[in-house]
């Protein structure tokens, strides 16, 4: 699936490249990018910023279902689940990122977490995915306001 441009949306100090989809199901903030029929998944700038400096990440491999937990991430003061954005099979985990999670803080969009062989690539057209800058801006702004209130 081709995206329109490689522009970057900026909300406050956070950047969101527009060459990928963003998964918001289960209040996730994962980016999803198709490359040669395989889906790369990573953490978006909001998730990285709100979590803080990452200390631990774990990812399970094998068959996955959309919205089901596939792992955890943890910083000094926060922990949460990672949910699969799509149905399919995790075929590769980025062990370098798991061994050095702060690589994700430094470069969230070039550091993928895992790759899924999707069962149905059309899933990326569902409501849980955002690719338009207008929708993305609204979503990020709303979540930043919620975060400010914590």
């Amino acid at each position: 699936m081709e995206l329109k441009s490689a522009d970057v949306l900026k909300v406050r100090e956070l950047e969101f490249p527009l060459d990928r989809f963003y998964y918001r199901g289960k209040k996730s903030h994962l980016w999803v990018k198709m490359r040669d029929g395989i889906t790369e998944v990573g953490m978006d700038a909001f998730l990285v910023h709100s979590t803080g400096y990452l200390n631990y990440i774990s990812i399970n491999t094998g068959e996955v279902k959309q919205g089901k937990g596939v792992g955890n991430f943890e910083s000094a003061k926060f922990v949460s689940r990672i949910f699969s954005p799509i149905n399919g099979k995790i075929i590769e985990v980025n062990q370098k990122a798991l061994d050095n999670p702060r690589q994700i803080n430094a470069s969230p969009y070039t550091t993928w977490l895992f790759k899924i062989e999707p069962s149905n690539p059309q899933e990326l057209e569902g409501d849980d995915f955002i690719s338009s800058s207008i929708e993305l801006k609204e979503w990020i702004e709303a979540d930043l306001i919620e975060l400010d209130g914590e």
């Binding site: 803080g52 910083s75 003061k77 949460s80």
Partner: peptide, 14 residues
């Protein structure tokens, strides 16, 4: 984190 010198949030909204 509280002084916004570090990013991050507290689990369970502590």
């Amino acid at each position: 984190m509280t002084l916004k010198l570090f990013p991050g949030r507290f689990y369970r909204k502590a």
